[in-house]
Nucleic acid binder design. Structure first.
Lengths: 217, 217
DNA sequence: TCCCTTACCGTACGCTGTATTTCGTGGATA
DNA sequence: TATCCACGAAATACAGCGTACGGTAAGGGA
């Protein structure tokens, strides 16, 4: 099997899944492929373009989820697929929103989302569409990032309470015991572990409701 | 003036403002301060902790904006202050949502936001509060990141249409001319340049409305 | 006066992305 | 068949990174 952009991207993705984005280097990808590091630059101009390649490969999977018959179902499907992708490939969350996503599959996802939103009842002109797209994109980006970071710290500190207290505790509990952050303290102590997917879906629905029932400003 | 964490953070922020996060290195900060690179590690354990320092310094400015008398005004003020901070310090947007923000000032901002939201009419229990906080945090993170990236690409490609077409055009216009992305094409061609701050405010208001008028799930 | 502790700094290592040079090999020509 | 060329791949080189470590200079106590 000859070398190709797709194969390079696949290998890079595999490595990034295991070692994270910081643990990903051109040299390691090359070694994994059994070639010299410079070979990669015959297929890619930059390390940055390599990341773009990886990102678009993930968007390819997201694009498969789109295109339901109903606009709302389409938007929800894409949002959930994006979230799922980021949970499978946490580095994807690091890149999300950090660069313009202009690969063919990213554009396809954008097209599906935009097309769906343009059929929503409250979206009347192109300005409304732009706003609606911006709103749901912003939420998805932020929510996914938040969830991934949360998951990472939970993993690194240990998931159970005692281990958590041993790691972040000394600092954080001391902070919370100052009494200067009562509400945060209440959230940390009493806060239940809400189902992440359900919360995601719920908030997204709320935003969609807000968009569709919006009187023109 | 002796060396201190605050002074280090201030210098690092100044450098990052000019050269971005990628152009920021321990060595450059040290050189700017006229000391050896290793001196910094007497005040900071990691490069990562240095970033935390910078982030919390920015949160200090954000915290000043909070604490209005009305809950909604407070949330809006904090959100706008966060956005303003990210526009002043674009690297802040790169870090936003990417790590847990546990510095004292970040906690203070979290406290103000949470306290405000807990007084919103639709927020009844701690679960509601957690959800509401998550929703507006997610939106702010995503929206700010989006806007900063947009601003960056606009700056790098040039702001006027012809320069833009010369840079991204060859690829993007070809893409759009395939006809596979009609809605995106319409957005790019006909899309007006909406006022970013106004859009931010508008969407945020929509989300707040959605939260406060939410029937319990 | 001598020693010890403490604070500080320069050097060094292994890594990064990438530009450039060298090398090995297959094919074409004399 | 012998020779040369061209071209693709690999090795080397360079500047910069975060940071571990060893040495040194300064100041206080015996």
């Amino acid at each position: 099997m000859p070398l190709s952009r797709a194969k390079i991207a696949a290998t890079a993705i595999r490595l990034a899944d295991v070692h994270g984005l910081d643990g990903l280097s051109v040299r390691k990808i090359a070694k994994e492929l059994g070639i010299g590091p410079m070979r990669l630059y015959d297929y890619v101009v930059n390390r940055s373009e390599l990341l773009d390649l990886m990102v678009d490969a993930v968007y390819a999977r997201i694009a498969e989820a789109g295109q339901r018959s109903e606009w709302r179902a389409t938007v929800l499907a894409i949002a959930h697929a994006t979230r799922d992708a980021a949970l499978d490939h946490e580095w994807f969350a690091d890149l999300l929103g950090g660069r313009p996503h202009l690969g063919p599959h990213a554009l396809a996802v954008g097209e599906s989302t935009a097309a769906a939103l343009s059929q929503a009842p409250g979206v009347r002109g192109i300005d409304d569409l732009q706003r609606a797209l911006g709103a749901i994109n912003a939420f998805v980006i932020g929510a996914v990032r938040r969830e991934v970071t949360e998951r990472r710290t939970a993993r690194s500190t240990g998931t159970d309470l005692t281990a958590w207290q041993a790691t972040l505790g000394p600092y954080l509990t001391r902070m919370l015991e100052t009494g200067r952050y009562p509400t945060v303290a209440r959230l940390v102590v009493d806060g239940a572990h809400l189902d992440a997917e359900e919360t995601f879906d719920h908030t997204l629905t709320t935003i969609l409701d807000g968009i569709t029932s919006q009187p023109r400003t």
